[in-house]
Computed example of a mutant assay.
Amino acid sequence: MMRFFIFLSLAGLVACSPTEDPVTAGRAHYLAAGCAACHRVDGRGGRVGPDLSLVGFRRSASWLDLWLKNPKGWKHDTEMPGFALDAKTREAVVAYLASLKNWSGAADGEAIYKKAGCIACHGIRGQGGHPNNNVKGGVIPALDTVVGTYTREELVVKIRRGVTVQADDPSGSSPEVNMPAWGEILSEADLEAVAAYLETIAIETPEEEEW
């Protein structure tokens, strides 16, 4: 069934004008490939994979390109299928995803955590484990140590400023995944709400896939 779905998705990729804006072309490819069946953007789409409303803010274009080239090469147990996009189509989809940076708000800390796509790195309930290159252990750590390690104020500062991950091997490539400075788009009330939510989460078996 999955192979049949992928075939239909790839067959439905649209032909775009050479002069068409890459973001517009990328959105057309995104929709034609059925990405919205699993991912939400601005409140529309599925909930199988992470919300992509802010994926352009939290992920670099280089990482997006690596991911689309070979999802399982980056995360072997992902449910994300490989679409075998040609270079031009992939470039357009990356341009579209990289443009998704507009924050429209959410009701509370948990909703912000999910809509901002924090689950893509930190997991549904903060269990971590998402791969990152050239970091200790090879994965993003769990959040179960935040309570007792940081005060509420320190958590807010950390989320506001973001984190540039240090390479485990200084002679190697820089880690692709860093935490952005969320203070650039989230309000102080949003930051406070997320910090409060992080203090409540428990590490448990996820009910959804973190891609």
Rank of each mutant, 00 (worst) to 15 (best):
V165I: 15
T164M: 06
V146N: 04
P170W: 12
T151F: 01
Y150L: 11
T145Y: 06
D169K: 12
L155E: 10
T145Q: 09
V147W: 02
E176I: 12
Q166V: 14
E176S: 11
T145K: 11
A142M: 01
A167H: 08
P175E: 02
V146H: 05
E154T: 03
V146S: 00
T164D: 08
S174V: 14
G162H: 07
P175N: 02
P175Q: 03
A142Y: 03
K158L: 03
D144W: 00
E153K: 08
D144P: 00
G172M: 05
E153Y: 00
S173N: 12
V165K: 09
K158Y: 01
R152G: 03
T149E: 08
V146Y: 05
G172A: 15
V157Q: 14
V165P: 10
D144A: 00
T151E: 07
A167Q: 07
N178P: 08
R152I: 00
R152W: 00
T145P: 00
Q166S: 13
K158E: 05
D168P: 02
P175K: 03
Y150P: 12
T151A: 04
I159S: 09
R160F: 03
R152V: 00
D144K: 02
E154V: 01
V156T: 08
M179G: 09
Y150T: 03
G162T: 06
P170K: 04
E153N: 08
P175F: 10
N178K: 09
I159P: 10
P175D: 01
V177R: 07
P141L: 06
L155G: 11
V177T: 12
D168V: 05
Y150G: 04
K158R: 14
S174K: 13
G162M: 04
R152L: 09
Y150K: 12
G162I: 02
E154M: 07
M179E: 05
R161C: 04
R161K: 15
R161D: 15
V156I: 15
V147L: 04
E154S: 09
R152E: 10
V157I: 10
V156P: 10
D168I: 01
T149H: 06
S174D: 11
S171A: 14
Q166L: 13
E176D: 13
N178E: 07
R161T: 11
G148Q: 03
T149S: 13
V157R: 13
V146I: 05
P141R: 07
S173W: 03
V157Y: 06
G162F: 09
V163A: 09
S174T: 13
G148T: 01
V165C: 06
S171E: 14
Q166K: 15
G148F: 00
V146P: 04
S171T: 14
T145E: 04
V146C: 00
N178G: 05
S174N: 05
R161M: 08
E176L: 15
V147I: 01
V147A: 09
V157C: 01
G148Y: 00
Y150C: 02
S173K: 13
T145A: 08
A142E: 02
S173F: 05
E176T: 12
